[in-house]
Amino acid sequence: MHAIILGGNGRIACAMTQLLLARSWAVTSIIRNPRQEAGILALGEGQPGRIHVLYYDLSDFKTASDAEGLFTRSGADCGVFAAGSFTNVYGIDRDAAKSAIAAATALPTVTKFLMISFPASRRNPAPWWNGKDIADYTSERNAYPEIGDAKIQADEYLVAMAHARRQRDGTESDSTFQAISLRPTWLTTGKGTGRVSLGKTRALGTVAIGDVAGVAVEMLSRDDVSGWFDLVEGGVGIAEAVEGVVEEGIDCVDGEDLERMYALAD
C-alpha cells in the first residue's frame, strides 16, 4: 500500500509515517516548508518501506482537481488528512480536507481515506454520553467554534462522498472504499502505551500521540474498517480494540442525521 499524508509534518502524521514504513508501506508526505524535508526523510532510516516528500501549501487546494494532481503524482492508493490550522481554520480544516476527500472518492485507484478529527465533531450530543460528557462536549464546541464547525463539515462530507462512491461502485459495503474518521481527544506527547479505549467512549480525556498513530495504522492495515471512531486512553490493546469495533459494528456517527449528510455529496 502507498499512503499520501496531507499535513505530513504534524505530530500524528510523523508517528504514522514511522509505523507505516515499519509495515513496508510507501509513504508520500506532503509538507509546505522545504526545511522540514530532512526530518521527514529521517523517519525512513532503517525502515523497510519507502518515504517520499512533496511540497504543497494546502491552502492552495481550491478544487478536487488540485488534490487529484497530488494523488496521481504520488501513485498513492490511500489518503490521510492529518493537517490542521489555528490561523486558517476554514481554509485547511474544511476546504482543503473537502478537496482531498473529493479527489480520493473520485479516483478508483484510491481505496482508503482517513481523517484525523475529534470527538466533539458532531451536531448532537452522542446518545451514549452521560451528563458530564454532554457538558464537556458543549464546553469544547463553545471554546473552539470555528474548529468544531470546520471539522464537522469535513467529517460529514467524507460520509456523503464515501456513500456516493459506494453507490457508483454498486455496493453499500466497505469493500471498495474505506472512509475513516478517527477522533482522538486531547493529545499528550510520548510514544504511547499501546492500550486505548476506542469507539463509543466518553466525550473528553487524553490520549498519547503514539497511540493515535497506532490505531490509525492498524485501521488502515485492514480492509473492513469504516466509520467514525472516538479515541481516548484506555486499557485495551490497539489491535484488540480495532477488532472489537469491527466485530461489534460500532460507528460513532450514530445519533447524527445520515440522510442529511448523504445529500451533501457533490
Rank of each mutant, 00 (worst) to 15 (best):
A104K: 03
Y137S: 03
D133K: 03
E172F: 14
R11E: 14
Y90Q: 05
D149A: 10
L54H: 06
T109I: 06
N142T: 14
G234T: 11
A263S: 15
M115E: 00
A76F: 04
S221T: 13
D223A: 14
N142M: 14
R11G: 08
L6G: 03
A162W: 03
I134D: 00
S173E: 11
F118Q: 02
A38I: 12
R94N: 08
A150H: 01
R35A: 15
T201E: 03
V89T: 15
L258H: 10
V196C: 06
D155G: 08
V212I: 14
I250K: 02
A42P: 12
F229I: 13
G49Q: 00
T72M: 13
K112I: 08
A265C: 12
M1G: 15
R50A: 15
E240C: 08
L187F: 10
G75N: 07
A67F: 01
A160W: 01
G205W: 00
L198R: 03
Y56N: 07
P184V: 11
F229V: 11
R23E: 07
S65I: 11
I209E: 02
M16G: 03
P184D: 09
A15G: 03
S221C: 10
R195S: 13
A162N: 09
T109A: 12
N88K: 09
N33H: 08
T201P: 12
T28V: 08
A120G: 11
P34H: 07
G91K: 04
G39M: 05
R141S: 02
D133W: 02
T17E: 03
E172K: 15
G237N: 14
A103I: 10
Y90W: 07
H2C: 09
V53R: 02
N124R: 14
V246C: 09
T189N: 12
D211P: 05
D230N: 15
A126K: 05
N142W: 04
S29I: 11
L41Y: 05
P145H: 08
T17H: 03
A15K: 02
Q36R: 15
H2E: 08
A160Y: 00
M261T: 13
V212W: 00
L6V: 12
V253Q: 00
S59L: 14
D155M: 06
K200M: 09
N88H: 11
P48D: 02
S29F: 10
R122M: 10
F86C: 09
